[in-house]
C-alpha cells in the first residue's frame, strides 16, 4: 500500500512529499497526518513540497485541510519549499493556502514553527513568515 512516510522529530511531524501525488495518496496523507498529530500530541507539522512540480486545486485543498485540522488540534502547519512556478500557478488559479503558513525551506520552516509554539508575541511574529491574514 502506498503511503507517504511521516517522520516524528520531537514536537514536530515531518513530511517530505517526493513524488507527484495521485488523489488517493493525498487523502491518505491527510488522514494519516491527523491521526499522527493526535497520537503524538505534536505541536507542529512541516510539509516539504519542494519536489512537487504541480499543486492543483485538489492538492491545495488537501494542504489547507491539513492546516485547518491540525489547527483545531492545537498544531501549526508550515508548508515549505514551494517552487516559484507552482506559486505563480496557484495565484493564477485563485487558490490561497488558507490555514497554513509558508516558509522558503525546511530550516526557515522549523524556525517559524519553533517561534509559533513558543508563543512569541503575535506582532513580532511576522519574521520570515507569511502571516495568515485571518490571524
Amino acid at each position: 500500500m502506498d503511503r507517504i512516510p511521516i517522520l516524528r522529530m520531537g514536537k514536530f511531524l515531518l513530511v517530505t512529499i517526493q513524488i507527484d501525488l495521485y488523489d488517493r495518496l493525498a487523502t491518505n496523507l491527510e488522514t494519516d497526518l491527523v491521526y499522527m498529530v493526535n497520537k503524538t500530541g505534536a505541536r507542529g507539522v512541516l510539509i516539504d513540497i519542494s519536489a512537487l512540480s504541480i499543486v492543483d486545486s485538489f492538492m491545495g485543498r488537501i494542504l489547507g485541510n491539513i492546516g485547518s485540522m491540525a489547527r483545531i488540534m492545537d498544531a501549526e502547519t508550515v508548508v515549505v519549499g514551494m517552487q516559484p512556478a507552482v506559486a505563480i500557478t496557484l495565484v493564477e488559479l485563485g487558490l490561497e493556502l488558507k490555514g497554513v503558513h509558508t516558509a522558503l525551506n525546511v530550516e526557515k520552516g522549523m524556525e517559524l514553527l519553533q517561534k509559533k509554539i513558543n508563543g512569541l508575541d503575535d506582532e513580532e511574529d511576522e519574521i520570515a513568515a507569511n502571516e495568515d491574514s485571518t490571524d
Binding site: V55, S57, Q83, P84, A85, T89
Partner: peptide, 17 residues
C-alpha cells in the same frame, strides 16, 4: 518555459479530475 508548463499541467490536472 517552466512556469507555462506548470500552468498547463495544472489546468490539465483540474480538467482530468
Amino acid at each position: 518555459s517552466v512556469v507555462n508548463q506548470t500552468k498547463l499541467i495544472t489546468a490539465a490536472s483540474e480538467l482530468v479530475r
